[in-house]
Design a protein around this nucleic acid. Structure first.
Lengths: 150, 150
DNA sequence: ATGGACCCTGTAGCCGCTACAGGGTCAACG
DNA sequence: CGTTGACCCTGTAGCGGCTACAGGGTCCAT
């Protein structure tokens, strides 16, 4: 029961982790997933360690971590004795980003909402949406043309 | 008071609209902003109509509209008699996108939050964050290595 | 006449993939 | 044994929306 040395083809690894084959090759190219052994005919042969690492990457990506953050977390996690404060820091940083994005999107959604509510459903020349997006610049108003389509 | 035919250099236009010079050239390249007249020495010479159109683009971008949506809205707004239902539709579509993104990010933030709260601030080998990101796959647990750093 | 601010074109890079093109290999079926 | 079709390989280019050069030309004030 000691050595199960299962081997995955790239397709099998893709299935096991939910990544696409091209994405796996891409991760190898950018040095995020170590290059696996090759079969005689040049096929990639992945180990369970590869699968675990790729699953980690995939789950982190699902949580929106950028690849560089993931790279750093993997690097940090290589030293099992190291305190995990740095990893914590990356995660907190990312959470901060996510919260800022939510706030931004909410403000944006509110603006869109009010813009849409101004639409009288008439002609474009009277459209509240176009009006809201157009510049009021300098006092002339209402009949400015955005025109000159290229 | 009839014909103010002010002309903007690309730098002046950038200042007037809050776009960067390179971005303006990019918009011209992709056909979003019509190519302006040129001076004798080849400098771009923009009209107020260009400024208005670019302001429209800029405000729409700030609201997160993709360039193709903006292109379409500009096209639609060229016909002033057209009913604005289509523009309304684009805006509503975009609002829907924004709302979906907010929901996604909220779910994500909650996951991150709970992940971070599991961190015991000990060593990496015991880190709740790494644990939450790592696969539990198939019963073996706790001491799996993500390793083999490239 | 000289310096620095502006302008020009063209190209390459950013992120995180995705989609080809143009081949080689392997396993199952007849 | 041959043929199909699913898989695999490399390499390159594209997406969106810019941004950043490099390597020049022009304009205006001093």
């Amino acid at each position: 029961m000691a050595g199960e040395e299962a081997v995955f083809s790239i397709g099998a690894l893709a299935k096991a982790t939910g990544c696409k084959v091209e994405t796996i090759r891409y991760y190898e190219r950018i040095g995020l997933l170590p290059a696996p052994a090759r079969t005689g005919s040049g096929y990639r042969a992945y180990s369970p360690a590869h699968r675990d690492r790729l699953s980690f990457i995939r789950r982190s990506r699902d949580l929106g971590f950028p690849l560089e953050d993931i790279r750093e977390m993997l690097r940090l996690s290589d030293d099992r004795e190291r305190p995990c404060a740095e990893i914590d820091e990356i995660a907190r940083g990312h959470l901060g980003e996510v919260k800022r994005k939510i706030a931004d999107l909410k403000a944006l959604g509110a603006e869109l909402d009010s813009m849409i509510s101004q639409c009288r459903h008439g002609a474009v020349s009277d459209c509240g949406i176009i009006g809201a997006l157009s510049p009021e610049a300098g006092g002339r108003r209402g009949r400015s043309q955005l025109g000159n389509s290229p």
